[in-house]
Nucleic acid binder design. Sequence first.
DNA 1: CAGTAG
DNA 2: TGGCCTTACTG
DNA 3: GCCA
Length: 720
Amino acid sequence: MSSSVTIAEASTSSSSKAAMTRGKKTAAAEAKSAPVKKDKSGKKKKKRELVTPLEYAQRLQERLLEMAATRKSHASPYLRGKRIFYYGGDMQYASEETRGRMDYIIKHGGTVVPTYDPAVITHIVTTDNPPKYPFLRLCSLRSLKEIPDHIPTVKWSWVISGASRRVNPTASSGKDAGKAGHTGNPDGDTAEQIEDASSPPPVDFKLMFHAAFKERLDAGITPYISKARPKPQKVMDPAGHDHSRVTPSEKGSRPNNSEISAISEFTLDRIEPKESEIRDFDSSSLLTDRIPGHSRFSSKLQDGAPVAGSSRESAASRTLNNPELDPLASFYEQARAEKEADNLQSSLSSDEEQDEGADSGGKCVPEHAVSRKRGFLCDSKPDEHTDCANQDVIDKLQELKILHKAKLSAEDNWRVYAYDKAIRALRSYPTRIRSYEEARAIRGVGDKTAQKIIEILQTGNLRRIGYEKTEDVEAINTFQGIYGVGRHTAFKWYANGCRTLDDVRARKGGIRLSPCQEIGLKYYSDINSRMPRSEAADIFNMIKPIALSIDPKLFIEIMGSYRRGKADCGDIDILISRPPNDGKTHQGVLRKLLGELHRRGILTEDLSLPDSFDDLELVYRGLCRRDSSSLRRRIDFLTVPYASRGAALLYYTFNRSLRLKANKMGYSLNQRGLFQGVIRNPSNRLEKLDDGTMVASETEEEILRILGVPWQEPHERIRG
DNA sequence: CAGTAG
DNA sequence: TGGCCTTACTG
DNA sequence: GCCA
């Protein structure tokens, strides 16, 4: 704990120091996100006061009576008798949305209960994709199972669907889909049909379809089921866990994934990832009240669900042990599966990955088994990176590459570079290599590598590996696995007598660690392991609403391997920006966000902080965790001026070859944009004689078009 | 400035 | 033979 | 190490 650096300390010290050492900073492309400053005139938008959801709900309570008295509302009071605890995703400030929804509930006869009180409330209503752990935290719960069965947890769409149903049962209001306002919801119709088709239960049958958490799909509807059947039916997940009652001695704070795994297995073939939803994500889509999963959900139900005999249904029935007794079985599964898909925000497809993955120990972990078992791959395509035609060759070369990484000489440095390139080329080489000539023909494979390839193909291994793999090299590689430790430090430690991590912990030889390295050592295994894609999604889903509560207009996007569709991620990269068209920017947002995330325990350690939080272009690196029982994960926040968001996405989606191509074409690509006419000092390439002019930066498409690169899905961006 | 991350 | 890679933070 |  002595090693963890708090935001406050670190930022003040580093910024003051920075102020002295650096004076100018890159005033180069000092974004002229010229504040438009026009808000002065007619727009007398009264300063929105910041109020917590709790406060707002309380005020509503107070106003309830007088509102009731003067209520002229033509709105149908279809929520009468419902005491609703509303969760808006953020406990700090009630967003406009949250307040609007609370108003709406009141207006339609419902009661807004300000706090989670299971003795009082009848319903929990949440945002459309509520982050689970923040929600639990707000309610002071450790598990969703602690919520009484009779209280459903539903999304806002449930409230709206009730409105349309009541007001306009059959008419299809055509469009809408946006603005969860007071307009009808066409999807209500679909649900209606389903209800009819599968008979009885009244309104509350819908609860399941709007459930906010897959774990509580059945909450609130049990009474209705029991009415239709002699005996209340427990809902068992495939692992045999009983979800229908609360176990008093519940101690597993760890989320139970068993059900998720099994269920999502048979969703694999149906979930069509929506790349556009991720790529085109912008603040507007974040702000709308569009119910993302909802319409898709309904249409899916239409085309396949309630029909008996589908393979899916039989699978579900089997799973549930009581096929004939539970006519709703297929719905449970269907809805669970759908919810799982939503939660995962599944997207894209897998790719062959040049991910380092090897830096730590050179183990190309067969993450295959893991991800497949967990069923999180949510991806119709099979993994491609494992069935590379020359996987064995790749593994050996990779191993050799790592051995060279432990050497200090510049020669070895370039060797590593070359191996890297060759390995990348081999990854995308489609067929089994058959000859030396064939190997040589691959760009990046020269004489030496081709010989090695042949040796591997013929003998199954590389003698050179055994030759290079000495004790010192292995120890040094181990040290290099510590975040913040490179070859020089590792070598020095070895020279001081260290051989193992325990030696390092004991400071053998009097070695010293930087604060950053101490963190790296402390969480060595955490940092060097990859997280399942779903965990990255969970963390991002916790962070996003927090960021949006700081400024609802933020552009916030997850990048890196997650965006490339990987089934597991080494870290989380989050890009933050904001459209400046109303005169404001995201300046200052990062500081607030980091503070808030620290306060909530999501961020646990800082690895590096920006010099100053005043710029629009910032980089933060740190560790985070989903909850107290999760491992630490690497997380980066990057902020850029809004106009640079496209370039930033490209830059951080990381495509070396793309930058190379840009260079060859006389351009220069960095996180700010694509520049033309950059002139560098030939003797010192770091010195720019001319910054050039930016020719593109807003969107990825724009940049790729200029570079003559056809649009590629993120997972395809390996080659230039 | 060297070392490091990415 | 000399280039391969950009930028920013840490100490 | 590869390549121009």
